[in-house]
Computed example of a mutant assay.
Amino acid sequence: MGNNNIKSIIESANLAWNQAFNSGNTKALVALYAENATLSAGDGKTLAGRAEIENLFKAFVENGVHNHTLEVIEAGGDEKVIYQVSKWNANGAETNGEVPSFGGVTMSVLKQSSDGQWLAQSHVWNAAN
């Protein structure tokens, strides 16, 4: 699989992720993860499985995190496993007339399921500000 094809798959996955998150649709968001996926939000803890991952994203949405974007820095892989390293940004809930902005670096590994869908198997990020 060529790098252009990999980047196209990653961009499509990121578009679906951002649309689900920014619309607050955590069911659609968690469906983009493998059932046994792991996730770490840079807090030293690891979540395992869709239920734990969905609870984290529900909390983010309920606390006003929105306008999430991803900018791919690097993408690679093969026919079965692909990865990305990207910059992420999001806004928080408005407080005192200010809309906070967050960002950092994220890395995710996607595996192709038996039905051909690319699902996040592992997702880790940090916050730079």
Score class of each variant (00 low, 15 high):
residue 57 F to H: 15
residue 57 F to I: 07
residue 57 F to Q: 08
residue 58 K to T: 13
residue 58 K to M: 10
residue 58 K to W: 03
residue 59 A to M: 10
residue 59 A to I: 04
residue 59 A to V: 05
residue 59 A to T: 11
residue 60 F to Y: 13
residue 60 F to P: 00
residue 60 F to E: 07
residue 61 V to I: 13
residue 61 V to K: 06
residue 61 V to T: 13
residue 62 E to A: 15
residue 62 E to L: 13
residue 63 N to G: 14
residue 64 G to S: 11
residue 65 V to L: 13
residue 65 V to A: 12
residue 65 V to K: 07
residue 65 V to E: 11
residue 66 H to L: 08
residue 66 H to K: 15
residue 67 N to P: 09
residue 67 N to C: 11
residue 67 N to Y: 07
residue 67 N to V: 12
residue 68 H to K: 10
residue 68 H to A: 10
residue 69 T to Y: 03
residue 69 T to Q: 07
residue 70 L to S: 12
residue 70 L to N: 11
residue 70 L to P: 05
residue 70 L to D: 08
residue 71 E to D: 10
residue 71 E to Q: 03
residue 71 E to Y: 04
residue 71 E to N: 06
residue 71 E to R: 10
residue 72 V to P: 06
residue 72 V to A: 08
residue 72 V to N: 06
residue 73 I to P: 02
residue 73 I to T: 07
residue 73 I to W: 01
residue 74 E to I: 06
residue 74 E to S: 03
residue 75 A to H: 01
residue 75 A to L: 00
residue 75 A to K: 01
residue 76 G to D: 08
residue 76 G to L: 05
residue 76 G to E: 02
residue 77 G to Q: 05
residue 77 G to S: 01
residue 78 D to H: 10
residue 78 D to E: 10
residue 78 D to P: 05
residue 79 E to C: 02
residue 79 E to Y: 01
residue 79 E to K: 03
residue 79 E to L: 05
residue 79 E to P: 01
residue 80 K to Y: 01
residue 80 K to G: 02
residue 80 K to V: 02
residue 80 K to E: 01
residue 80 K to F: 00
residue 81 V to S: 04
residue 81 V to H: 01
residue 82 I to S: 00
residue 82 I to V: 08
residue 83 Y to D: 01
residue 83 Y to R: 04
residue 83 Y to G: 07
residue 83 Y to W: 10
residue 84 Q to E: 11
residue 84 Q to M: 10
residue 84 Q to N: 10
residue 84 Q to D: 06
residue 84 Q to G: 11
residue 85 V to K: 04
residue 85 V to T: 05
residue 86 S to F: 03
residue 86 S to K: 04
residue 86 S to Q: 04
residue 86 S to N: 02
residue 87 K to A: 05
residue 87 K to L: 09
residue 87 K to N: 07
residue 88 W to I: 00
residue 88 W to T: 00
residue 89 N to W: 02
residue 89 N to P: 02
residue 89 N to L: 12
residue 89 N to T: 14
residue 90 A to E: 12
residue 91 N to Y: 11
residue 91 N to F: 11
residue 91 N to D: 14
residue 91 N to T: 14
residue 92 G to Y: 12
residue 92 G to W: 12
residue 92 G to T: 12
residue 93 A to I: 13
residue 94 E to Y: 12
residue 94 E to D: 15
residue 94 E to Q: 15
residue 94 E to R: 14
residue 94 E to T: 15
residue 94 E to H: 14
residue 95 T to C: 06
residue 95 T to A: 15
residue 95 T to K: 15
residue 96 N to G: 08
residue 96 N to I: 02
residue 96 N to S: 09
residue 96 N to F: 05
residue 97 G to Q: 14
residue 97 G to P: 13
residue 98 E to K: 15
residue 98 E to W: 03
residue 98 E to N: 14
residue 99 V to F: 13
residue 99 V to Q: 12
residue 99 V to C: 12
